[in-house]
């Protein structure tokens, strides 16, 4: 699903990622662990080009999305991302946070259709060979209605439907992060990228967020999680990357990484955190 080929990332002189090549298959749940400054987050952010790779390419569903000529926005819609700092839109209510992207994008598509139809109509006035006009069946009201229903269903799923009309500033960290997750889900992504989703949460709220991620795991969502929750990584991941100094030092099943790590640096790291 995602092919990472010879990925490098530099910030000026600093080499953050050094020639990473790996493949993420559909249905895999990948946990990325490693010490801070190892390039975990940068690697994850390169997967949807939030950071533009310095070298190499990211092939997502057969398209090289690191290529500047590709419309990255179209591809990002299929990759949900969840941030450490939640990043809910502060000026929108919870419901609007979830509906904004689906509505905006559906409306953009609708306008494109209408424009194409309009052009064809004009063309048909003069052209001998008439082109068929596509019927436009959706209306803006329908788009909004569908987005709203979907958003409410997602909110019900996490038991926060009563928070639909409040602003993010009134929510707890755990609630914010769960809403950030369903906001990403509202786009029906094919893969979810989590950038330390529980690192800025109070300890008592970590559980509710991890439970929601586990539900996604049960649904078979492909996901990549940068995390410091070793127990969680061991429980849900199908593959674990241990990263240090910009390379994936070890790429193995959780059992093997956590019980018999091969690399001395992995051993050292796990001895410190477990």
């Amino acid at each position: 699903m995602i092919d990472v080929r010879n990925l490098t990332k530099n910030y000026g002189q600093l080499e953050v990622l050094k020639d990473i090549t790996t493949t993420i298959h559909e249905g895999e749940k990948i946990a990325i662990i490693g010490p801070s400054g190892s390039g975990k987050s940068t690697f994850l952010r390169c997967l949807n080009c939030m950071e533009d790779p310095t070298g190499g390419s990211i092939i997502f569903n057969g398209v090289d999305i690191s290529d500047f000529s590709v419309d990255i926005n179209v591809h990002r819609r299929h990759m949900g991302m969840v941030f450490q700092q939640f990043n809910l839109f502060n000026n929108k209510t919870v419901l609007d946070n979830i509906m904004l992207a689906p509505i905006t994008i559906a409306m953009q598509n609708l306008r494109k259709q209408q424009f194409k139809r309009f052009i064809n109509k004009i063309r048909n006035l003069v052209a001998i060979e008439k082109r068929p006009l596509d019927e436009i069946t959706t209306t803006p009201a329908q788009i909004r209605q569908a987005a709203r229903e979907n958003a409410m269903n997602l909110l019900k799923r996490i038991g926060l439907e009563d928070k639909a009309t409040v602003y993010p500033s009134t929510l707890s960290g755990g609630q914010k992060q769960r809403i950030a997750i369903i906001r990403a889900l509202a786009m029906n992504p094919k893969v979810m990228l989590f950038d330390e989703p529980t690192s800025s949460l109070d300890p008592e709220m970590v559980g509710e967020v991890l439970d929601l991620i586990k539900k996604l795991v049960e649904d078979g969502m492909t996901m990549v999680i940068v995390t410091h929750e070793m127990g969680f990584a061991r429980e849900v991941a199908t593959r674990v990357f241990f990263m240090d100094e910009g390379i994936i030092l070890e790429d193995d099943t959780p059992e093997r990484i956590f019980t018999s790590p091969q690399n001395p640096r992995t051993k050292n790291f796990l001895a410190k955190v477990l």
Partner: peptide, 15 residues
């Protein structure tokens, strides 16, 4: 405005 707001919008596929 926190840079995370722009990142969140872009990550959702908004321009």
């Amino acid at each position: 405005v926190d840079t995370g707001q722009m990142e969140a919008g872009r990550a959702l596929g908004l321009s």
